[in-house]
Deep mutational scan, measured.
Amino acid sequence: QVATSTVRILGMTCQSCVKSIEDRISNLKGIISMKVSLEQGSATVKYVPSVVCLQQVCHQIGDMGFEASIAE
């Protein structure tokens, strides 16, 4: 089973930030795809909930120095 959710990301300033986040999160087990939008300050994450949760994704992004939260 696959889920798609949006994560809000604060602190991104350039495409390099976007690429860094996409590269790191895409390597997590259970992540199918991730598309980060600098303009919208968010990311669309396609993932397998039984393998990885959005809290883990937000935590990983937080470790990179950005502020991440699950969009309502």
Rank of each mutant, 00 (worst) to 15 (best):
L38A: 02
V36R: 01
R8A: 07
E22D: 01
A71L: 14
T6S: 09
S16K: 14
C14R: 02
K19L: 09
K35W: 07
M12W: 05
C14F: 04
A68G: 03
M64N: 02
L28G: 01
Q60M: 15
Q56H: 11
Q60E: 15
T6Q: 10
C17T: 04
C17E: 13
E39D: 11
V2C: 15
E67C: 06
S69R: 12
K29R: 13
E22F: 08
C58A: 10
V36I: 13
S20D: 12
V7Y: 01
A3W: 15
A43N: 02
C14S: 07
L54E: 01
L28K: 01
S16W: 06
I25E: 00
S20F: 06
L38R: 05
V57Y: 04
V45G: 02
K35L: 07
V52H: 01
A43V: 05
V57T: 01
T13G: 03
M64C: 03
V48Y: 15
T6M: 14
E67P: 09
V2A: 07
S5M: 12
V36W: 04
E39M: 10
Q1M: 06
G41K: 12
A71T: 10
K29F: 13
Q55W: 15
V45R: 02
D23R: 14
M64Q: 01
I9N: 00
V7D: 03
E39T: 11
Y47W: 08
I32Y: 05
G65K: 02
Q1C: 15
Q40C: 13
S69V: 11
C17S: 04
S33M: 09
L10A: 10
I21V: 05
G62P: 03
A3G: 04
V51G: 02
E67W: 13
V51Q: 10
Q55K: 12
G11W: 06
S69T: 12
I31P: 00
S33Y: 11
M64W: 04
I61T: 03
K19H: 09
K46F: 13
M64I: 07
M12H: 00
C17L: 05
C17K: 03
G65L: 05
A71Q: 13
I31K: 00
T44E: 12
G11P: 01
Q15C: 05
S37R: 09
S16G: 08
T6C: 11
A68W: 08
Q60V: 15
G11H: 04
G11K: 05
A43P: 03
E22C: 06
S37A: 06
D63T: 14
Q55F: 12
T6R: 14
S16D: 13
F66T: 02
S20A: 09
E39A: 11
C58D: 03
G65S: 03
A43F: 05
G41D: 06
C53M: 10
L54C: 04
S33V: 05
F66G: 02
V45Q: 02
I32M: 06
A43K: 01
M34T: 04
V51C: 05
T4M: 12
I25L: 07
G41W: 07
V36G: 01
K19Y: 10
V2Y: 14
E72M: 09
V51D: 07
I9M: 00
G30V: 08
T4K: 07
F66K: 03
A71R: 07
C17P: 03
S33R: 06
V52I: 14
S42M: 14
S69G: 06
C58L: 15
V2W: 15
S26A: 09
P49C: 06
S20Y: 06
L38H: 02
V51K: 07
E39L: 13
Q56R: 11
Q15T: 08
V52N: 00
V7F: 13
D23E: 12
L54A: 04
S42T: 13
N27R: 14
S20L: 14
C53Y: 06
K35H: 10
N27Q: 14
V7K: 00
L28A: 02
S50P: 03
D63G: 08
V52E: 00
V18Y: 04
A3R: 10
S42R: 11
Y47R: 00
A43C: 05
I61S: 02
S50Y: 08
V2P: 06
A3E: 11
Q1V: 09
I21N: 02
D63E: 14
C14V: 03
M12P: 00
D23L: 13
G30Q: 03
G65H: 03
Q15P: 09
Q1W: 13
G41I: 05
V51I: 13
N27P: 10
L38M: 06
T44A: 09
S37L: 06
L38W: 06
G62E: 14
S20W: 07
I61E: 02
V48I: 13
G11V: 06
G62Y: 13
K35M: 07
I25Y: 03
K46E: 15
E39G: 07
Q40V: 07
C53P: 08
I61H: 03
S5H: 12
V45N: 01
S37V: 06
L38V: 03
V48L: 12
N27L: 14
Q60N: 09
I32T: 02
A68D: 03
R8Q: 08
K29Y: 14
I21M: 02
Q1E: 15
D63F: 12
A68S: 05
Q55G: 08
I31M: 03
K46M: 15
T6N: 09
E67R: 14
S69F: 14
C14P: 01
S20M: 15
Q1I: 07
V57Q: 02
Q1L: 05
Q15W: 10
G41A: 14
I70V: 12
S37I: 07
L10M: 11
G65C: 04
K29G: 08
S69W: 14
S26T: 11
E39V: 10
V36E: 00
G30Y: 05
S33W: 11
Q60H: 09
Q40A: 12
S5A: 14
S20K: 15
G11M: 05
G41S: 13
R8L: 09
C17G: 03
C58Q: 10
D23G: 09
T13K: 14
K19P: 01
Q40G: 10
A68K: 02
D23P: 01
V52K: 01
K46W: 15
I21A: 01
K19N: 10
D63R: 14
T6D: 05
M12E: 00
L28I: 11
D63V: 14
M34V: 14
S26I: 10
A3C: 15
I70N: 05
Y47F: 08
Y47V: 02
Q55P: 06
H59C: 07
S16C: 05
L38P: 03
Q1S: 07
S5T: 08
I21S: 01
S16I: 13
L54I: 14
T44Y: 14
I70E: 06
E22Y: 08
D23M: 12
M34P: 00
E72F: 12
C58Y: 09
K19W: 11
P49G: 04
G41R: 15
S16Y: 06
P49N: 05
R24N: 08
D23Y: 11
T44I: 14
T4L: 12
L10C: 07
A3N: 10
I25V: 08
M34I: 15
I31H: 01
V52C: 04
Q56Y: 15
E72L: 10
D23H: 13
L54K: 02
L10D: 07
S69K: 09
L10N: 09
Q40Y: 13
G62C: 12
Y47S: 00
Q1H: 12
Q1T: 09
L10F: 14
R8G: 06
Q40I: 08
G62A: 14
S33F: 09
V57S: 01
A3Y: 15
E67V: 13
S50L: 08
I32F: 05
A71H: 07
G11N: 05
V48E: 15
M12Q: 01
Q60G: 04
Q56W: 15
M64V: 03
K29W: 13
